[in-house]
């Protein structure tokens, strides 16, 4: 008995030591996490209740929920919110479906061929967003862009289309670019997930007479669900936070047709110095992201 309690004491000490080591390993990251995530987050929520602006000896004025109520009466914010949701609702399914389709086609390929495909789709992800944007801007150029050139050459377009300067097209151009820069990571993840599906399960289903569609939906799809969930959440967050493309290509125009909440946060805080208002938008955006992610988790669990 005494021997057993000594052993338990030793194992507890060991666990404590290992736990302490683990926390020490985590500490550097934790410091950054607290410093650059937790504290800014708290300040963001706190400042959103104030009329806060830049200036010497300017005191922040507590205004309660006024920033939040103003948001819903601000037509630019409402348009930005609508645009953001359009981007999310179009981009997320498109990215997921396209990357799953491509992955299903290429994951059985071997060696160089598979690596080539991975490279092709991953290249826009690792290329700097400025470089990507500059190239796209050239392609969309009103005067000598390749889209107008090809379109006119093929007789599809009669007169040059001002892709980024026309309300009817600008947001869709942004979505297209976002799509190309978003599919790389999901494809790599899906290829990996599909490659890790237990072949014995697939073979067993074949023995039971399952066809290809049944094999995919009944065996592979449930097994890659965690990857799908991760891709959904990450793509949703990235789409909600679409900013650099807007900043570099359209500055929210023409006529606010490409304003997103992220861009409007930047504009309110850094151009108009309305820090409280910008933070209130940040909180609202975070709530939307959290809600949508929660729904995705819930749906994935039910599956």
């Amino acid at each position: 008995m005494a021997k057993s309690s000594v052993a338990t004491g030793r194992s507890k000490a060991l666990v404590r030591r290992e736990t302490r080591s683990a926390y020490l390993f985590l500490l550097p990251n934790l410091i950054f996490f607290v410093g650059f995530v937790v504290i800014p987050m708290i300040l963001c929520v706190y400042t959103s209740f104030f009329d806060s602006t830049m200036g010497k000896d300017v005191e922040d004025v507590f205004i309660g929920l006024k920033n939040y109520t103003e948001l819903w009466q601000d037509p630019i914010f409402l348009r930005a919110l609508k645009n953001t949701f359009v981007i999310v609702l179009v981009s997320v399914p498109a990215v997921c479906i396209f990357s799953l389709w491509v992955s299903a086609l290429i994951y059985r390929m071997k060696g160089v061929v598979l690596s080539t495909f991975r490279c092709v789709f991953y290249l826009p992800v690792v290329t700097g967003s400025v470089a990507v944007t500059v190239v796209w801007k050239w392609m969309f150029n009103n005067y000598y862009g390749i889209f107008n050139y090809v379109g006119k050459g093929l007789g599809v377009v009669e007169n040059n289309i001002n892709w980024l300067g026309d309300e009817r097209f600008a947001l869709w151009c942004i979505i297209l670019i976002l799509f190309t820069t978003s599919v790389g990571q999901p494809i790599v993840l899906y290829v990996s997930a599909l490659g890790n599906v237990d072949t014995s399960l697939v073979e067993a289903s074949e023995v039971d007479g399952a066809n290809n569609i049944q094999k995919f939906w009944k065996i592979k799809w449930p097994l890659i669900m965690p990857t799908t969930l991760y891709i959904l959440v990450i793509t949703t967050i990235n789409s909600f936070q679409c900013f650099a493309l807007i900043q570099l290509l359209t500055s929210g125009g023409p006529n606010h047709s490409t304003d997103t909440v992220m861009y409007y946060i930047y504009y309110s805080a850094f151009k108009l110095y309305r820090y409280g208002y910008g933070n209130a938008m940040g909180v609202v955006l975070a709530i939307f992201i959290a809600l949508l992610s929660a729904v995705q988790f819930k749906l994935a669990k039910e599956k």
């Binding site: 987050m41 963001c44 929520v45 936070q241 992220m262 940040g282 955006l285 959290a290 992610s293």
Partner: peptide, 9 residues
């Protein structure tokens, strides 16, 4: 989630 909005991009 909130930090993603708070910290920007």
């Amino acid at each position: 989630m909130m930090s993603l909005a708070a910290c920007g991009n």
